[in-house]
Write a protein that binds this DNA or RNA. Structure first.
Length: 268
DNA sequence: CACTCATGTACAC
DNA sequence: TGTACCTGAGTGG
């Protein structure tokens, strides 16, 4: 779920449900100071990378949420929905209830703290105001592997392990290539593809990266049975045949995260 | 039912 | 580099 496109969808969903409405705010679990925004008007929900921010009226405080690995929102229109399990934050307005469980972060920020969080985030391919040059400068000067840089939210904000694996496959780049060994044009193609893939992920609510000409049907192969909520080239396909060249997809661990790639299609 | 693993990040050493 | 966070899906017995 929680790569950047999913957070942008959540921001839109929260905005639809609560934007401009006075809300009831509680923390059934007790681990969030929900009372601070109880009874206020929900101002706006916005995303930057994997971070979600909610503003209120009249209040300068901003709720900052990061789902981490486990966090989820659930929505229901059932009135007086019972609290099940550990709910960090519940918002209710006009019969709509949104429950937040298991976030890595759910905290109130003052404006200067909000600015500080944003200042640590690189450009987000899903934001129209993204400063792509800032990411290019970081990548093209770094000795770190491009696979590491793509997961560094200070470099690019929003892509996670799936988009990383898939964009490197689509651009035929060896994941261990140092950032500074990429040409500016090659990095531009990576950025542009992230913009495309993540926007499509936002629209569809799932991650699909396989080009039509590589669909199994187009390749004269039987339909695949290894999808997990989206259709991809290499993510979690260790040992399975590459959809383009047929050689086995490789996997290893880099910076504590699983990395998937096709050694044949993505050779340096 | 017990156990592993995950689309993420921060912090300890 | 390892561990904590703390949830749910999947797997295997």
């Amino acid at each position: 779920m929680p790569e950047g496109h999913a957070i942008h969808r959540l921001a839109a969903q929260l905005q639809d449900a609560f934007g401009g409405h006075k809300i009831e705010s509680t923390s059934p679990q007790g681990r969030f100071n929900a009372q601070a925004v109880d009874g206020l008007e929900f101002g706006d929900a916005r995303a930057w990378g994997k971070h979600l921010f909610i503003g209120f009226t009249p209040s300068a405080e901003i709720v900052h949420i990061h789902l981490g690995l486990y966090g989820r929102w659930t929505f229901t229109s059932e009135p007086d929905s019972p609290v099940v399990g550990q709910v960090r934050w519940r918002i209710v307005s006009d019969g709509t209830t949104a429950d937040l469980r298991g976030p890595a972060t759910c905290e109130l920020l003052l404006p200067h703290e909000y600015d500080a969080v944003l200042s640590r985030l690189g450009p987000d391919p899903l934001r129209p105001d993204a400063d792509a040059e800032r990411a290019a400068d970081r990548v093209l000067r770094s000795r770190a592997p491009i696979a590491t840089l793509l997961m560094d939210q200070a470099v690019v904000s929003g892509p996670g392990n799936i988009f990383r694996a898939e964009v490197l496959f689509r651009q035929k780049i060896d994941p261990l290539t140092p950032g500074r060994d990429l040409s500016r044009a090659a990095w531009q193609r990576v950025w542009d593809d992230l913009v495309f893939l993540m926007a499509q992920g936002f629209d569809r609510g799932r991650i699909d990266t396989v080009r039509p000409e590589h669909e199994p049907e187009a390749m004269g192969r039987p339909p695949r049975e290894d999808e997990h909520g989206g259709e991809v080239y290499v993510y979690r396909r260790e040992g399975l045949p590459c959809l383009v060249c047929g050689s086995p997809v490789a996997a290893s661990v880099l910076n504590g995260r699983n990395l998937f790639w096709c050694p044949h299609c993505q050779s340096a």
